[in-house]
């Protein structure tokens, strides 16, 4: 299939679903579908660092927060100006421009944050890297708590609602295709070589520093975009949405599904998000259930539900040239 045909069909399908989905499944389920989508973006992108490059990061919530707040503040403070400049466009196009501007800013800001965290973290390995990424995430959250212009501890309200099923799942598609293509290119092989054996990778000419930072930056950019979509859907942001526990849930998603597999990350994101909703009626018992389930899955299936299983096989080897 030609690429542009694929994207055209995807756009049309998403638009059609956007217009009918809420009526079909009700507002509550619609919201869950949105949350699932955002978590898929976060999990698939986190998988790039943790699953493919083998660097243990538990600070994803920090980049998510940077994106969410950057996009929200841009649209909140710069929105009127952007609307003014695009007044000749219909409302829906104005909204799209605003959201795209927010997404763009979110990606850049979160990417810069990812770079800033990635560089110093390179000297650290394993659990030390883990705790430092967690620390960076918490530092970002505390900084946000102390900035009054974006609501501080009161939370940031009055964010225009711009994202919806169409946008969220368009980004889901883009994320999945990007990560899939990336890990099946020389970049992906470089990432995986670092995970498998960093010293051998360097000896084969893989600039491990560069690739590690790259996977941090790409991964954070997508987390930032997810943040933007989240803020412009819920119209309200609070630093507590970006506690390290959020990062934990993302890690849980990719490990439950099966580390280093895109399908696994998607499955994990769907499962965790939906399970938490299903258990909601049990009150505190909801997370008791969830946590015991988690422990049991990891005891009885430590490689994750899908393991290294993959739906989209990479291309087969070509026959040797004569």
């Amino acid at each position: 299939m030609k690429k542009w045909v694929f994207w055209l069909v995807a756009l049309a399908a998403l638009a059609a679903m956007e217009s009918s989905l809420r009526g079909l499944i009700g507002a509550y389920n619609y919201q869950i579908v949105i949350l699932v989508g955002i978590n898929i973006i976060l999990a698939v992108s986190l998988n790039l660092i943790n699953g493919y490059t083998g660097q243990f990061s538990i600070g994803h919530a920090g980049f998510y927060a940077v994106g969410a707040y950057t996009s929200a503040s841009l649209v909140f403070y710069g929105g009127p100006a952007i609307r003014g400049a695009t007044a000749f466009l219909p409302q829906i196009a104005q909204n799209a421009v605003l959201l795209l501007a927010g997404i763009f800013a979110a990606a850049i800001a979160a990417g810069i944050a990812g770079w800033a965290v990635g560089i110093p973290s390179l000297r650290l390995r394993g659990d030390y890297l883990a705790i430092v990424t967690l620390g960076f995430g918490e530092i970002i959250r505390v900084l946000i708590l102390n900035i009054d212009a974006i609501g501080g501890s009161r939370g940031f309200s009055g964010i225009p609602q711009l994202s919806n099923f169409f946008w969220v799942y368009l980004v889901v598609l883009i994320t999945v295709v990007t990560v899939h293509n990336l890990v099946n290119s020389s970049y992906g092989r470089a990432f995986i070589s670092i995970r498998d054996d960093e010293i051998a990778a360097e000896a084969m000419g893989v600039d491990t520093t560069r690739y590690k930072v790259m996977s941090f930056v790409i991964s954070s950019m997508f987390a930032g975009i997810a943040g933007s979509l989240f803020g412009h859907y819920t119209m309200y942001l609070h630093p507590n949405s970006f506690l390290f526990t959020t990062s934990f849930y993302l890690i849980i998603m990719i490990v439950i599904g099966g580390l280093g597999s895109i399908e696994g990350a998607i499955l994990g994101a769907v499962l965790v998000t939906v399970l938490l909703e299903v258990f909601r009626e049990f009150g505190a018992f909801r997370l008791v259930n969830f946590s015991i389930l988690l422990v049991l899955i990891m005891i009885y299936r430590p490689q994750g539900l899908l393991g290294a299983w993959t739906l989209f096989r990479p291309r087969k080897a070509a026959p040797a040239a004569k």
């Binding site: 849980i252 490990v255 439950i256 946590s291 015991i292 422990v295 990891m298």
Partner: peptide, 15 residues
């Protein structure tokens, strides 16, 4: 996987 178990136990004790 062991680390996830630890996170699970932590969630379990809190809730």
């Amino acid at each position: 996987a062991l680390l996830i178990i630890a996170i699970g136990v932590s969630l379990f004790l809190e809730n």
